[in-house]
Simulated scan of single mutants.
Amino acid sequence: MDSTLDEMDRRILHVLQRQGRISNADLAERVHLSASACHRRVQRLEKDGFIRDYVALLTARKIGYPTMVFVEISLSGQADELLEAFEREVALVPEVLECHLMAGTADYILKVVARDTDDFARVHRQKLARLPGVQGMQSSFALRTVFKTTALPT
């Protein structure tokens, strides 16, 4: 963790990660700080890039995307141009929630959502298989999400 964060900053970040819509007054009360001091700290944390954004986290099942698939991608090569082309194009696939460059057996691991297995088959055929340099794919379907968080340890 960045050494410019003190314990108060960590407490603020801890609360905001779990309750992004909390009012400044309530946040200040939770971390035992005046409202004005709390507001200044949050502004600094935003300006310094510790807080990147505020978002609404949707329930995938409720909006019609109950199927979660983890896809291991192997590319035909490791040239910078190929990696850059793959990364540029995979970012345009709306069903891909995450893409990670890996060390190990796969070059990339993708987290993909789909409406059902037929929808995933379409995404696989029409989008993922056509990405630059894709040589092989291995897909694993999540049966159930046991635990999920976006909160980093503070």
Results as ranks from 00 to 15, higher is better:
residue 2 D to A: 09
residue 2 D to Y: 08
residue 3 S to R: 15
residue 8 M to L: 11
residue 9 D to P: 05
residue 9 D to Y: 05
residue 10 R to T: 04
residue 10 R to N: 10
residue 11 R to P: 08
residue 12 I to N: 06
residue 14 H to V: 04
residue 15 V to D: 06
residue 16 L to S: 04
residue 17 Q to G: 14
residue 19 Q to Y: 10
residue 21 R to V: 13
residue 21 R to L: 13
residue 22 I to R: 13
residue 23 S to C: 03
residue 25 A to D: 11
residue 28 A to Q: 00
residue 28 A to K: 00
residue 29 E to P: 02
residue 30 R to E: 11
residue 30 R to Q: 10
residue 34 S to K: 07
residue 34 S to I: 09
residue 36 S to I: 12
residue 38 C to R: 08
residue 38 C to N: 11
residue 39 H to F: 15
residue 40 R to C: 03
residue 42 V to Y: 01
residue 42 V to G: 05
residue 43 Q to L: 15
residue 44 R to C: 08
residue 45 L to M: 09
residue 46 E to D: 08
residue 47 K to R: 14
residue 47 K to Q: 14
residue 48 D to W: 11
residue 48 D to E: 15
residue 52 R to S: 13
residue 53 D to S: 06
residue 54 Y to I: 09
residue 59 T to K: 15
residue 59 T to R: 13
residue 59 T to G: 14
residue 60 A to T: 10
residue 61 R to N: 03
residue 62 K to C: 07
residue 62 K to H: 09
residue 63 I to S: 00
residue 63 I to E: 00
residue 65 Y to Q: 01
residue 67 T to K: 13
residue 70 F to K: 05
residue 71 V to D: 02
residue 71 V to K: 07
residue 73 I to W: 01
residue 73 I to C: 02
residue 75 L to C: 03
residue 76 S to F: 10
residue 83 L to S: 04
residue 85 A to S: 07
residue 85 A to R: 01
residue 86 F to D: 01
residue 87 E to Y: 02
residue 87 E to L: 00
residue 90 V to K: 01
residue 91 A to P: 09
residue 92 L to N: 09
residue 93 V to K: 01
residue 94 P to D: 04
residue 94 P to T: 04
residue 98 E to M: 09
residue 98 E to I: 07
residue 98 E to W: 02
residue 102 M to S: 03
residue 108 Y to M: 03
residue 108 Y to C: 04
residue 109 I to T: 10
residue 111 K to M: 05
residue 112 V to M: 02
residue 113 V to S: 04
residue 117 T to E: 10
residue 117 T to C: 06
residue 118 D to E: 14
residue 118 D to N: 13
residue 119 D to Q: 02
residue 119 D to F: 00
residue 122 R to W: 13
residue 123 V to E: 00
residue 124 H to I: 08
residue 125 R to T: 12
residue 126 Q to L: 12
residue 127 K to D: 02
residue 127 K to T: 05
residue 133 G to W: 03
residue 137 M to A: 02
residue 138 Q to P: 00
residue 139 S to D: 06
residue 143 L to H: 07
residue 148 K to L: 08
residue 150 T to I: 12
residue 151 A to V: 11
residue 152 L to T: 12
